[in-house]
C-alpha cells in the first residue's frame, strides 16, 4: 500500500470569520479618521506630531513590556495603535509631546499590560491616561487653543470651551453657536470637537458591526432626556440639551470610549445599563460636579462596574420562559420557608 498522508485535525467549526482582532481595530482607526482630519484642520500640524509620538510610544511600550516579560508579541493586533490615537483625541492640542509619552506609558503598561493585556484591563486605557495627565499636569491640560475657524473672531491664543460657559451658566459668545459647535469650530480636546465627524465615524463602526447601537444610544439618549427634563436657567430646553450633547466629549465618549470591548459589559442588556449609567453620571457631574466635563469620569466609574453589570444582566437561556423563572424563584422561596419552619420546629 502506498504511504498515506495523514491530514490535520481541528475541532469544529472548521472555518471562521475573516474578521479578526486586527480587522476590528483597523475599522476603529478608520472610524477615527474624520475626527482627526477636522482636528488637523483646526489645530494644525502639531496634532500630527502628537499622533506620531503617541503611536510610536504606545506600540513601543507594548512591544517592550511583552518582550521583557517573555510573552507573545501582540502589537500586530493594532490595539496599541487604537489606544494611542484615542489618547491623543482626549488631550488638548496644547499638550506637550513628552506628556504624551508619559501618558502612553501609563495607558499601555500600567492600565493595560499589568492586568494581562488586551481584553483583561478593566479601565479604558486612553481615559485612564488622560485622568493621570490631568492630575499630574493640570495646567497644560486645561489650556484650549483657538481653532483655525475662529482665528478671525477671537483675539487671543487661548479661549474657554463651550462646556465651561454651560457649566457657569453664562451665555455663549456669538461665534460659538450650535452650528459651529456641531461642525467642530470650537475649542476642546483634539478628537472631540466635531460632532459631525464623530457621528460619521460612529455610524461607520455600527455599520461594520464593530460596536452595537446599545451603548451609544443609551448613553447619549439618557443625557438628552435628563437635560430635557432639568434644563437650565437662561437657556431654552432644546438649546440646552443640544448644546450639552455637542459641547463636550459626549459623542467621542459614547461611540469610541464607552464601547471599548475590554471595559464594557458583554451582555446585551448590560450594555444598555452601562450606557444609561454613563449618561446619568455625566449629567450629575456636569450639573453638580466641581469640573465642567463629566464624560471621561463617568465612563471610568462605569468601567469599574462592568463585571457586576455583566453578572446582573445575564440572558435567560433558550427554553426557559419568564414563567419558568418565576416558578423557580417561588420554589426556592418555599424551600427556604420550609427550612426555616423546620429549624424553628426542630
Amino acid at each position: 500500500m502506498d504511504e498515506v498522508k495523514v491530514f490535520k485535525v481541528t475541532s469544529n467549526p472548521i472555518l471562521r470569520t475573516e474578521r479578526g482582532t486586527r480587522q476590528i481595530m483597523l475599522d476603529v482607526i478608520i472610524g477615527l479618521v474624520p475626527a482627526l482630519a477636522v482636528a488637523v484642520y483646526m489645530f494644525g500640524a502639531k496634532v500630527v506630531l502628537l499622533l506620531a509620538v503617541s503611536v510610536v510610544s504606545c506600540v513601543f511600550f507594548e512591544w517592550a513590556y511583552r518582550k521583557l516579560m517573555k510573552k507573545n508579541t501582540t502589537v500586530g493586533d493594532l490595539s496599541a495603535v487604537v489606544t494611542a490615537i484615542l489618547l491623543v483625541c482626549v488631550l488638548p492640542s496644547e499638550a506637550k509631546w513628552w506628556m504624551v509619552v508619559i501618558g502612553s506609558f501609563f495607558s499601555v503598561v500600567v492600565v493595560k499590560q499589568l492586568y494581562g493585556g488586551i481584553g483583561k484591563n478593566f479601565l479604558n486605557p486612553a481615559l485612564a491616561g488622560r485622568a493621570f495627565l490631568t492630575a499630574a499636569y493640570a495646567g497644560y491640560m486645561t489650556v484650549w487653543a483657538v481653532p483655525a475657524a475662529l482665528a478671525g473672531s477671537v483675539d487671543a491664543a487661548t479661549m474657554a470651551t463651550p462646556l465651561s460657559y454651560l457649566y457657569n451658566g453664562q451665555a455663549m459668545p456669538e461665534y460659538l453657536n450650535l452650528t459651529s459647535i456641531f461642525l467642530g469650530a470650537r475649542p476642546g480636546s483634539i478628537g472631540e470637537i466635531s460632532t459631525l465627524a464623530l457621528l460619521v465615524g460612529g455610524l461607520w463602526l455600527i455599520a461594520r458591526k464593530v460596536i452595537s447601537w446599545r451603548i451609544p444610544v443609551s448613553f447619549i439618549g439618557s443625557v438628552a432626556v435628563l437635560c430635557l427634563i432639568f434644563g437650565h436657567e437662561g437657556y431654552g430646553r432644546l438649546d440646552w440639551t443640544l448644546l450639552n450633547l455637542c459641547s463636550g466629549g459626549l459623542v467621542l465618549g459614547a461611540f469610541f470610549m464607552a464601547t471599548d470591548y475590554s471595559t464594557s459589559p458583554v451582555t446585551l442588556r448590560g450594555q444598555l445599563v452601562f450606557g444609561l449609567g454613563c449618561g446619568v453620571l455625566t449629567v450629575l457631574i456636569r450639573y453638580f460636579g466641581s469640573y465642567p466635563e463629566g464624560v471621561s469620569y463617568a465612563i471610568l466609574i462605569m468601567n469599574c462596574c462592568t463585571w457586576g453589570v455583566d453578572k446582573l444582566t445575564r440572558p435567560r437561556q433558550f427554553g426557559i420562559s419568564a414563567e419558568d423563572v418565576k416558578a423557580a424563584k417561588a420554589a426556592k422561596k418555599a424551600a427556604k420557608a420550609k427550612a426555616k419552619e423546620g429549624a424553628a420546629n426542630g
Binding site: T21, I24, T74, D77, S79, G117, I118, G119, S212, Y261, S262, S264, P265, V266, T267, L268, Q271, P315, R316, Q317, F318, G319
Partner: peptide, 16 residues
C-alpha cells in the same frame, strides 16, 4: 486571545 467583544454572546442561539 479574548478581547471581550461579546460577539459570542450575541451569536449563541441558546442565549448562553
Amino acid at each position: 486571545t479574548c478581547i471581550r467583544c461579546g460577539n459570542c454572546i450575541a451569536h449563541c442561539p441558546m442565549k448562553l
